[in-house]
Write a protein that binds this DNA or RNA. Structure first.
Length: 739
RNA sequence: GGGCACGUGGCGGAAUUGGUAUACGCGUACGGCUCAGAACCGUAUCCCGAAAGGGUUGAGAGUUCGAGUCUCUCCGUGCCCACCA
C-alpha cells in the first residue's frame, strides 16, 4: 500500500477540480438555492490561520449541503479599499494599488491550497472600477433620497491615520484600526442618516435568526431611551424674545427619562459646548411646574451630542446629579413625584437614541471617490449617472496630509470640473468613502458580479437573497453588520431590493489563539503560518483540526495545539489504512446508521467537533473488524468528504467508487436501524445510580421493575428500605424512592 | 457603572436537552516494536481508598424520585458598551 502522501494528493485534486468546478448556476433543476456567506477578507497580507478558520470550516457546510442536493453559492472576494491595506502599503513605501492587487494575487493562490469550494467566477474586488461604479451609484440613490447630508459637527479624528472616523470605528476612545487615541475636531463632513432607521433597526432585530448577544449588542449600540423634553424659561430673558433674538437664548430645553421628578430639580447643567455655556454662571432657569428659580451650571458629565446637551439636575434621584450638587453646594430636594397630569402639561414625549449618523467622509486616498461636485453658484450636485464611475486617479503623492483634506485635493486636474447643472467652474469632492460603505452591499454583487447595467439584476438577487447563512467576526456586530442592515433597509425603501433584512441567519465565530493562549501577533512570536502547516500535514488535516477545535457557532477562543493537529493527522492516516480492509461482509450496522444520523445533525448545527468525533468512533469500529463492507466504506468516505475533501476523493477514486465523492449523495440512515435490539437500563435509588441491566428494547414496565429489583447490588439497598414510589423511563431508567 | 456570554479532568472540549458526568482528541504512565530514538501499535488515566465504598461539574441554597442542565444568592472569567440624564 502506498503511504498517505498529502501533498501529492492535494495538488492532484486541486488541479483536477480546477477553478470552475464550483461555478454555481442561478438555477439548478431540482435543487434549492442556498446562499452561504462568509465576511470577505481584507487583502492586507498573507492568509493567516484566522482566514482558514473563517473560510475552510464553513466550506464543510457548503459541501455537505451540496451533497444533500442544494445548489450552494459560496462566494469569495476582497474588501480591497481602505485603511488596513493603505497603511500596510504606506509602511512599505508602495503604491496602495500595487500592494493591494499583489496581495490579492497571492491570496488567491493560498486560498486554492485550502480546497474550499468557492465560486471564483463570482469574485468581486471592491477596488475595481466595475465594482465601485455601483458603490457610487447606490450612494447617489441614498443622496437623492435625502439620506446623505453635509454637516459641521464634532467628529472623531485619528491623528495617526489622519482621517475622521465614524463612532462605530472608535473603541475606548481609540482608533479601531491603529489604536491611536482619537481627538474631537469640528469638521464639515458627509453623513448618512442611519438614525432615521434607528427604530426599524431595533424592532426588526426581534425576528432575526441570530444569537442573542448580537441582538443585545446592537440594541445597546442603538441605545433607545424614552422620556420627555421640558422647557425651562430663563429668568429675565423675555426681552430677548420680544426683540427677536434667537429662541435658544430665552429657554433651555432638557431631555429626561424621568419627567416625574420635575419637582426635585435643583439646578440645570449644560454641556460645555452648549450655546448658553458661556453665560451659564449668570443665568437662572424657571421650573415650569412650580416657578422655582434654579441656577444654571456647565458640567463635564453632560454629553453634548446626546439629547439636548442640557440636563435637569435632580440630586435626589440621580447619582451624578447628587455628586455634582454636593460639590457645588446645591440643595438636594426630596421629592414629591409629579402626577401624570403635571408631566403631561409641562413636558413633551421624546425618544432618544445613542446611535449617531454615519460619518462617511475619509481624508484618505485609497477609497471610493465620493461622486459629488461643488459648484460656486449652485452648490452640491451629484455626478450624472453617465459619468460614473468617478475613477480614483493614479497619483504619486498619496500620503495623507493631515490638513483635513484627502491627498486627492492636490490633484487639481482631477478636482477641477464643470458643474453638471450650470456648466460653470466647479470642484469634485476629494474625500473618499468609508470602506464600510463598500462592504455594505458586496453580497448583492455576488449574485450578479459581471452586470454592467445594474448593480445586480432583480431576478438574480431574488434567486439568492436573503443570505441563508452568514458567518463572521464578533467585532463587526456594531460595524459592518449594523451598517449593512441599514443600507439594505434604505435600498428596500428606494425599491432596489426585495427584502427588509439582508441576512436570514447569522453567527459569530470564535477565534484562534497562539499555542501560548495569546492572540497571535508578530511581537508575541506565536504566529502559526497556515502555509507551513499545510506543507507539513496537509490542508485536509488543517481544515479538520480547525473544525475539531471547538463548536463553531460560539464566540470562544481556541489556542492552537500542536499535539491536537497531530491527532487529526493520525486519524487521517488510520483512515488511509482502512482501505486495505475493504471486502465482503455484512453491511449497515447500527453504529453506521447512528453515525450518519449524528454527523448529519451535527453539521447542520455547526457542531463540526462532535461530528468528527463520531467519525473517529466509527473508524475505530472499522479497525476492530477483519473486513469492512465496500458499501460501508463508501458511506464513510462520503461523510468524510466535506471535512477532508482531497483524501476522501483520493480514496474514493483509488477504490473504484463511481465519479467524484463530492457529487455523490449524502448517505441516508434508517431510523429503525440506528436502534440496537437491546438497551441498557439504569437503576437509581433515591436518585443515585446503583446498578444497570441490559434488556430487550421495549421491555415492559413490570418486567423492568422486577429485573431491577433482582439485581444483587440493588436488592441489597432495597432490603434495608421501604419502597415508596417507583418511576420508569422507557428503555432508559428505573428509579426507586425509598426510605 | 450597565449589558451579554460563560464557569465541567493536567489541556481543547462531550453529555441523547432533567435520567450512567468526563465521549472524542491532546498530554501523561506503562508495555510492544526497535541496536537506539522518532514514528507507530496496545493498555491505563476525574479525585480519595489496598478494597468494599465514598466524593466530584466555581461556592451556597431551592425545585425534583433524579440537576452540569431549571430557579435564586454570591464569587470569578471573557467580550461589548459607558458621565447617554
Amino acid at each position: 500500500m502506498k503511504s498517505y502522501n498529502h501533498s501529492a494528493i492535494e495538488k492532484k485534486w486541486q488541479k483536477k477540480w480546477g477553478k470552475n468546478s464550483y461555478k454555481t448556476p442561478d438555477v439548478k433543476k431540482g435543487a434549492e438555492n442556498f446562499y452561504l456567506l462568509t465576511e470577505f477578507p481584507y487583502p492586507s497580507g498573507n492568509l493567516h490561520v484566522g482566514h482558514w478558520y473563517a473560510f475552510a470550516v464553513p466550506d464543510i457546510l457548503a459541501r455537505y449541503l451540496r451533497m444533500n442536493g442544494k445548489n450552494v453559492l459560496y462566494p469569495i472576494g476582497f474588501d480591497a479599499f481602505g485603511l488596513p491595506a493603505e497603511n500596510a502599503a504606506l509602511q512599505r513605501g508602495l503604491n496602495p494599488r500595487i500592494w493591494t492587487y499583489g496581495n490579492i494575487a497571492s491570496m488567491r493562490k493560498q486560498f486554492a491550497s485550502m480546497g474550499a469550494s468557492f465560486d471564483w467566477s463570482r469574485e468581486v474586488v471592491t477596488a475595481d472600477p466595475a465594482y465601485y461604479q455601483w458603490t457610487q451609484w447606490l450612494f447617489l440613490k441614498l443622496y437623492e433620497r435625502g439620506l446623505v447630508y453635509r454637516k459641521k459637527t464634532n467628529v472623531n479624528w485619528c491623528p495617526k491615520d489622519k482621517t475622521v472616523l465614524a463612532n462605530e470605528q472608535v473603541k475606548d476612545e481609540k482608533c479601531e484600526r491603529c489604536g491611536t487615541e482619537v481627538e474631537q475636531r469640528k469638521m464639515e463632513q458627509w453623513n448618512i442618516k442611519i438614525t432615521d432607521y434607528a427604530e426599524r433597526l431595533l424592532t426588526d432585530l426581534d425576528a432575526l435568526d441570530c444569537p442573542e448577544e448580537i441582538k443585545t449588542a446592537q440594541r445597546n449600540w442603538i441605545g433607545k431611551s424614552t422620556g420627555a423634553e421640558i422647557k425651562f424659561e430663563i429668568k429675565g430673558a423675555s426681552f430677548n424674545k420680544t426683540q427677536g433674538t434667537a429662541d435658544v437664548l430665552s429657554e433651555i430645553v432638557v431631555f429626561t427619562t424621568r419627567p416625574d421628578t420635575l419637582f426635585g430639580v435643583s439646578f440645570i447643567a449644560l454641556a460645555p459646548s452648549h450655546p448658553l455655556a458661556k453665560e451659564a454662571r449668570n443665568l437662572c432657569a424657571i421650573n415650569p411646574a412650580n416657578n422655582e428659580e434654579v441656577p444654571v451650571f456647565v458640567a463635564d458629565y453632560v454629553v453634548d451630542d446626546y439629547g439636548t446637551g442640557a440636563v435637569m439636575g435632580v440630586p435626589a434621584h440621580d447619582e451624578r446629579d447628587r455628586e455634582f450638587a454636593l460639590k457645588n453646594n446645591i440643595p438636594i430636594k426630596n421629592t414629591d413625584f409629579a402626577s401624570t397630569e403635571v408631566v403631561e402639561k409641562f413636558s413633551t414625549k421624546k425618544t432618544q437614541y445613542k446611535l449617531h449618523d454615519w460619518v462617511v467622509s475619509r481624508q484618505r486616498y485609497w477609497g471610493v471617490p465620493i461622486p459629488l461636485i461643488k459648484c460656486e453658484r449652485c452648490g452640491w450636485n451629484a455626478v450624472p449617472e453617465k459619468d460614473l464611475p468617478v475613477k480614483l486617479p493614479d497619483i504619486k503623492d498619496y500620503v495623507p496630509t493631515g490638513d483635513g483634506k484627502s491627498p486627492l485635493a492636490k490633484v487639481r486636474k482631477w478636482v477641477e470640473v464643470k458643474c453638471p447643472k450650470c456648466g460653470g467652474s466647479a470642484e469634485r469632492e476629494t474625500d473618499t468613502l468609508d470602506t464600510f460603505v463598500d462592504s455594505s452591499w458586496y453580497f448583492l454583487r455576488y449574485t450578479d458580479p459581471k452586470n454592467k447595467k445594474e448593480f445586480a439584476a432583480r431576478k438574480k438577487m431574488s434567486a439568492w437573497l436573503p443570505v441563508d447563512f452568514y458567518s463572521g467576526g464578533a467585532e463587526h456586530t456594531t460595524m459592518h453588520l449594523l451598517y449593512s442592515r441599514f443600507w439594505h433597509k434604505a435600498l428596500f425603501d428606494i425599491g432596489l431590493v426585495a427584502d427588509k433584512e439582508p441576512y436570514a441567519h447569522r453567527i459569530n465565530r470564535g477565534f484562534i489563539l497562539g499555542t501560548d493562549g495569546q492572540k497571535m501577533s508578530k511581537s508575541h512570536g506565536n504566529v502559526i503560518d497556515p502555509d507551513e502547516e499545510v506543507k507539513q500535514v496537509g490542508a485536509d488535516t488543517v481544515r479538520m483540526y480547525l473544525a475539531f477545535i471547538g463548536p463553531y457557532n460560539e464566540t470562544g477562543s481556541y489556542p492552537w495545539d500542536k499535539g491536537g493537529i497531530a491527532g487529526i493527522r493520525r486519524f487521517l492516516e488510520r483512515v488511509w489504512r482502512l482501505q486495505e480492509k475493504i471486502g465482503k461482509c455484512e453491511a449497515g450496522s447500527a453504529l453506521l446508521h447512528q453515525t450518519i444520523k449524528k454527523v448529519s445533525e451535527d453539521i447542520t448545527a455547526l457542531k463540526f467537533n462532535t461530528a468528527i468525533s463520531a467519525l473517529m468512533v466509527l473508524s475505530k469500529a472499522f479497525e476492530n473488524e477483519e473486513t469492512i463492507a465496500r458499501e460501508d466504506f463508501g458511506i464513510f468516505l462520503r461523510m468524510l468528504a466535506p471535512f477532508a475533501p482531497h483524501l476522501a476523493e483520493e480514496l474514493w477514486h483509488e477504490n473504484k467508487y463511481n465519479g467524484s465523492v463530492h457529487k455523490a449523495p449524502w448517505p441516508a440512515y434508517i431510523e429503525a436501524t440506528t436502534q440496537t435490539e437491546s438497551v441498557t437500563i439504569v437503576v437509581q435509588i433515591n436518585g443515585k445510580m446503583r446498578g444497570a441491566f441490559s434488556a430487550a428494547r421495549g421491555v415492559s414496565e413490570a418486567d423492568a421493575f422486577a429485573r431491577a429489583a433482582g439485581l444483587p447490588e440493588v436488592a441489597r439497598w432495597l432490603s434495608q428500605k421501604q419502597i415508596q414510589k417507583r418511576f420508569f423511563v422507557k428503555d432508559k431508567l428505573v428509579s426507586f424512592v425509598a426510605s
